[in-house]
Each structure stands twice: as C-alpha cells, then as structure tokens.
C-alpha cells in the first residue's frame, strides 16, 4: 500500500480537462535537440519566445519583514517577472495579505499575474506555505487541479503542493500542459524525505496517465547526487547539476526534476539566476532578498508527445 495518498477527485477532474484533447496532430512535431548545451548555466533569465520559463525560488522567511523593505520587494518583483511561472517556498506569515499585496506590485505595470497559495504547514508554531505565481498572459491554471499531498504516514515535514497548468500557445498549436510539485524538505531529514519524494513523484504521475509532464521543483536541501529514491526513478533528470543555488554560492540545494523522455518540451536550457551579477548587488544585499537564488528551466509552449527525448542534456539522467 502506498504511504502517500492523493486527494484525487478534484485533481483528476482538473487534469482531464487539461489533457483530454487530441494530441495526435503533434506527434511528429518534436523540437530540435539542442546541441552541446550545458545542463546548468549561471546566467540571467533567457529571452522569451515560443517557450515558457518555469522557476523555483525559496524566498527566505517571506513575510511582513520583507514586505516592509521596498528595495527588496522591487528586486523580488523584477525576479518573478523574468519568468512565466514561479514555485515559491517559505511564505511565512499568519497574515494572509502578503501574496495579494505582492500581486498588486507585480501587476502594477498592467500585466496580469495570479497566485495559488497552499495551506500553512509545519511541525511547530513556525509555519510555511507554498505558492505558485503565474503570468496569466502566458500560463493558464487548470481549474481545481491544485491539492496538497496527503501523507498519512507523516513522512514529510511540509507536504508538497501540486497544481497543473497549461501554456498559452499560438492558435492551432497543442499547448504544453504540465503538473508542478512544489517542495521544501526538512534539512534534518533529507534522506527520508527524498525517498518519500520518489514515491510522491510516481504517485502524481500515476494519478493521471494522460499527463506525462510532471515536474518536481523546490528546495531539496541536497544536490542531485543525493536524491535517494527520487534519483532512482528511471530516466529522472535534475536540471541543476554542479552549480550552487544558494546566495553564498557554496551549496546546490534547489532543483527542477523531471523525466526528459516524457517532457520532450524541455529545451535543454536551465540555470541559476545569479541575483548578484544580474542586479549588481553585494552579497549582503542579495542576502536581504534571500539566501537562495532562483533556478529556472525553459520549455516549449507546444505539447510534444510520443516519448521522444527532445534533449539529452549534457548532465546525467538516471
């Protein structure tokens, strides 16, 4: 019996809506394989095009104290707007006005961003929430597809928050649909939790066989060589390999994990968004923003099916 159980009804209903259309037309339209791209680069975010940029960002203790710092919020807002969708970890505020207030800042230039906020999770009076921020001009949320992983065996400190989305593609193009699993592991229980996340990943994949693009992203508190059961999933791939993701550039904690043989939409471009060089910050100032850098990966807005691997990036699959 699975230790982890999904709250399936709303999830399945939502994903059916996402993937229930005809995909045969795009079977032969696979993207060109990128050549000799590094698996990870440390750069600014890539230029937009027929792709979407999916990011993950642990914003250390994101709450009232950061909201009260206009310079920090200005940088956070610019960072988010460099991407199409951002999985955020470490919203830490009992007051539930933080994300609505931030959305006002993000949307102040006329863009239309939305947010999904998970429940408050944690074993002590300290609680965290997961957030998905997405640009409604490029991404649609699949209605009622979000849920928190049910964890009856209590394997995970902060159970992952899952939601499905659809890229807004050109007319006549089958849009890329995908399910994101947002996670922040307990640094003292990384080994146990990475094993559990292997099960989470497989359960989410099996819960909707019509969705082959399942992407786990967040702060894993370990690098890709220590993924345990998650790393033993055949063909699993970590987009960030060998590049530090913390602001002090000493540890690789964050990652974007998926199966390229299914997620052929991956362009081969992924990296760490170095806030220090991008915004010419001192390390001290960057630490005011977060102790993590955002990480990102780029995907085609067009759905590709049929199992071909668009890119066999230079990094290792397993």
């Amino acid at each position: 019996m699975r230790a982890l159980i999904l709250t399936t009804i709303a999830f399945l209903a939502g994903l059916f809506a996402a993937t229930g259309c005809n995909v045969e037309k795009v079977l032969e339209q696979l993207p060109d394989a990128p050549s000799n791209l590094p698996a990870t680069s440390t750069t600014a975010a890539p230029a937009p095009g027929d792709t979407i940029r999916i990011a993950s960002f642990n914003i250390q203790v994101f709450g009232q104290s950061k909201m009260d710092k206009p310079d920090v919020m200005q940088i956070l807002t610019k960072v988010v707007k460099s991407f199409d969708i951002v999985a955020v970890q470490e919203l830490r505020s009992a007051e539930q006005d933080v994300i609505p207030r931030w959305l006002e800042m993000i949307n102040a230039d006329g863009e239309n961003w939305g947010a999904l906020v998970g429940p408050r999770l944690g074993r002590t009076v300290s609680k965290e929430q997961y957030v998905f921020l997405y640009n409604k001009g490029t991404i649609e949320f699949v209605e009622k597809s979000d849920f928190t992983i049910n964890d009856p065996m209590d394997l995970l400190h902060r159970e992952p928050y899952v939601a499905s989305f659809r890229a807004i593609a050109k007319p006549g193009v089958q849009p890329f649909t995908f399910t994101l699993i947002n996670i922040h592991t307990d640094p003292d229980l990384v080994e146990t939790e990475l094993d559990a996340l292997g099960e989470v990943y497989e359960v989410v994949c099996q819960a909707n066989p019509n969705e082959d693009d399942v992407i786990l992203l967040g702060d894993l508190n370990t690098d890709y060589t220590h993924f345990g059961q998650l790393g033993r999933i055949p063909g699993i791939f970590a987009a960030i390999q060998g590049t530090p993701t913390n602001t002090r550039k000493s540890k690789s904690y964050d990652n974007i994990v998926f199966e390229p043989r299914h997620t052929a939409e991956f362009t081969g471009q992924a990296g760490v968004f170095d806030l220090i060089s991008a915004y010419k910050l001192t390390e001290e100032k960057a630490l005011d923003v977060s102790d993590h850098f955002p990480i990102w990966a780029t995907f085609s807005t067009q759905e590709f099916t049929g199992g071909a691997v668009a890119s066999a990036p230079a990094g290792q699959t397993r």
Binding site: R92, A94, T124, S126, P187, D291
Partner: peptide, 19 residues
C-alpha cells in the same frame, strides 16, 4: 525565540536554526 510572542522573531529564529 522560536517560542516568541512575535511572529517575525519566531520565523527568523527558526530560519537561523534550520541552517
């Protein structure tokens, strides 16, 4: 301070100890 009456004190203290 992880039991502090003030949320910001609690959360920053938690974050410090986590790392």
């Amino acid at each position: 301070c992880c039991q502090d009456e003030d949320e910001q004190v609690r959360e920053w203290s938690n974050a410090a100890l986590e790392e």
